[in-house]
Design a protein around this nucleic acid. Structure first.
Lengths: 124, 124
DNA sequence: GCCGTACTACGATGCCTATCGTAGTAGTCG
DNA sequence: CGACTACTACGATAGGCATCGTAGTACGGC
């Protein structure tokens, strides 16, 4: 075993992500069709950086939050990594733009337009 | 009474559609997140004309087909009208483009790109 | 070493939905 | 009128999913 890959301790903390080629349009659309998940994606796109799960103050329990983040991750919309005790979430903009050019931007623009239209203009 | 609207016989054949302002992004994304419905929308966009329900040869029963067309209609993606015995379906491109500029086109492009990517290039 | 924080996993529940089959209604054509 | 076509409505079923609560695991600080 020359390579002697030290197997960086599976640690049971590695999260399964679809590789770019495995991302399916239907799954992405489904992930974005939930208001709570769409809101999360909008926030992530706004900061264009990673955010911890606890940063989001969603009106549901932690368990449900975990579930929504998992749907987003497994559909390929976000990437999740552990950083110490925190789990950071980042938008997979490169992969999404590569596979579906313009899709994410038009969805984000549509969400923003609708937020204005529905009078949610004042932040929340 | 001048108008004297003769009430063109409700006939129980008028189909409820959301007006433009009632169309919700989440509902549209959800409607498009089903493979069968996405396929229908792609065909409608390809012909840019009305198509009867029976034109589509979906691998499900008539009942299920009716259900899918209703989801598309109630979400505001398509418009349905009766023409004789046939029920014609047309994409509401104007309304969708007006509310969510570029969204429909990028979804259609993404669907086409994915179809190619998955090797479904040879028809079925 | 112990505790608090952050997040997960598991089990349960209720709703939504995709699917079917059967029966029924509207329109057209003979 | 009568048969045929096109589509709907209704009822049933099974699976998915958003939600919760509780219990558990990993990390970092004291």
């Amino acid at each position: 075993m020359t390579t002697a890959a030290p197997a960086p301790a599976p640690s049971s903390r590695d999260l399964p992500h679809p590789v770019r080629g495995e991302i399916r349009l239907e799954a992405v659309l489904h992930a974005l069709s939930d208001p709570m998940r769409l809101q999360v994606v909008r926030e992530l796109a706004a900061v264009s950086d990673e955010l911890s799960c606890s940063h989001f103050d969603l009106p549901v329990t932690k368990s449900t939050t975990t579930h929504h983040f998992r749907v987003l991750r497994e559909s390929g919309v976000i990437r999740q990594v552990y950083r110490g005790t925190a789990k950071m979430n980042g938008l997979r903009r490169d992969d999404l733009d590569g596979l579906f050019p313009g899709l994410l931007d038009s969805v984000l623009a549509a969400a923003a337009a609708q937020a204005v239209r529905l009078g949610s203009v004042a932040v929340r």
